[in-house]
Every structure is written in C-alpha cells, then in structure tokens.
Design a binder for these strands. Structure first.
Length: 189
DNA sequence: GACCGGATGTACT
DNA sequence: GTACATCCGGTCG
C-alpha cells in the first residue's frame, strides 16, 4: 500500500510498523531509510497509551500520520508515527543515514559516519534535530518528508527493546542484515 | 506536594 | 557489564 494513501495508517499498527521499513524519512532534508521500528497500542502494557489518554500522550490519540515526540530519561527524544486506531503508534528506532550526513555528524558531535550515527531512537532524533517542538506535527508536511519504496524489503521480527512490560511480544521490525540497526535481531543478524 | 521511574546513550571498568 | 546523567507526567497522599 502506498504511503500516499490515506488508508496506510489505518492498517493494524503492526502492519504499519512493518510497512515503514525501507521508507525514507527526512527532516528538513536530513535523514535516511527507516531500518527499525516497534509497534505500540492502547491494549499493550508497554505503551504510553495503556492507561488511557493523558496530557503527555494526547498526540497518540490525535490524527493519524502525525508525530508523537516525547522526552525519555530526561535527556533524549523518541519519534513515533501515530496510527489510525486511537492510542496506537510506531516508534522509529533506527535509520540508515543517506541525506544531510554533515548535519547529522555535527548534531551528534562525531567525525565520520559510523554505525551508531542513527542507531537508536534517541540517537536518530538527535541526528535529525527532532525535539518536542515537532510533537503533533504532520508527517505529510515540512519539515517532514516520507518517501515510499518501490521494492519489498526483507523484514525480520523480534522482541522489543528497553521495556519491562510485555517485553516478549514480537513487535519489533527490522531490515534484515542492515548494518544500521540499534541491535541485532537474534537469529537473523 | 513528594516521589517514582522510564520505548536511552555514553563513559568507564 | 555497570554507573550515571537529568526531566516531567502520573500517581498517591
């Protein structure tokens, strides 16, 4: 299904998470290919939306295709794309750097493109300059740009990372054998 | 009004 | 592998 279709985000959140693998995401022209995602929804004990709508997670219950950005551990930011079912969203965990690499390196304070440049939700938000100012912004409009893929990527699945509740549910998706994952997929990479 | 703890990253041992 | 930085919404009192 094309990203340009309004129905893309109305699919089950796990399918959206899988479908976003291989898609190019940029912020003001800086970004790359999404290689790792995770799915969350309101029925999921690990999800911010599990306890219902609050001030913090209100964006998760807002329009689909918008960005849910939050601060984690007081230091970092994480980017999600809100899906059609209220309280569901896809966490973007890693991208393969392709565009504006100089800007990413400068924001990250590192000298050359290494595997860790955008590997992890906090790292990719830092590299792309994503912060709370973008919470609620539409992915269909600048500074965001999503570009569809024409090939079908080879997607692998595994348990999610960094959560304590429902940690065993296989709701993490990745591009098989990508060098740019935040962590390997056991049995695949 | 106090306290808790997290969808993390980095530095260091 | 472990320590620790640093924020704020949620929860309970």
């Amino acid at each position: 299904m094309s990203l340009l279709s309004p129905d893309f985000y109305t699919q089950p959140v796990d399918e959206v998470a899988q479908g976003l693998i291989g898609v190019t995401l940029t912020v003001d022209g800086v970004g790359g290919i999404i290689v790792e995602t995770e799915a969350y929804d309101a029925a999921d004990p690990a999800s911010h939306s599990f306890a219902g709508r609050t001030v913090r997670n209100a964006t998760m219950f807002g329009p689909r295709g918008h960005a849910y950005v939050y601060r984690i551990y007081g230091l970092h930011h994480c980017l999600n794309i809100v899906c059609g079912t209220p309280g569901s969203a896809v966490l973007i965990r890693a991208i393969e750097p392709r565009h504006g690499i100089d800007s990413m390196l400068e924001r990250r304070g590192i000298a050359r493109p290494i595997r860790e440049l955008c590997a992890g939700p906090g790292r990719l938000c830092a590299a792309l300059g994503i912060n709370m100012a973008l919470d609620g912004a539409s992915l269909d409009r600048p500074p965001f740009l999503l570009e569809d893929v024409d090939t079908v990527p080879d997607v692998v699945t595994g348990p999610r990372i960094g959560i304590t509740k429902a940690a065993d549910r296989p709701r993490r998706f990745g591009l098989r054998s990508s060098l740019w994952l935040s962590r390997p997929f056991p049995g695949f990479n």
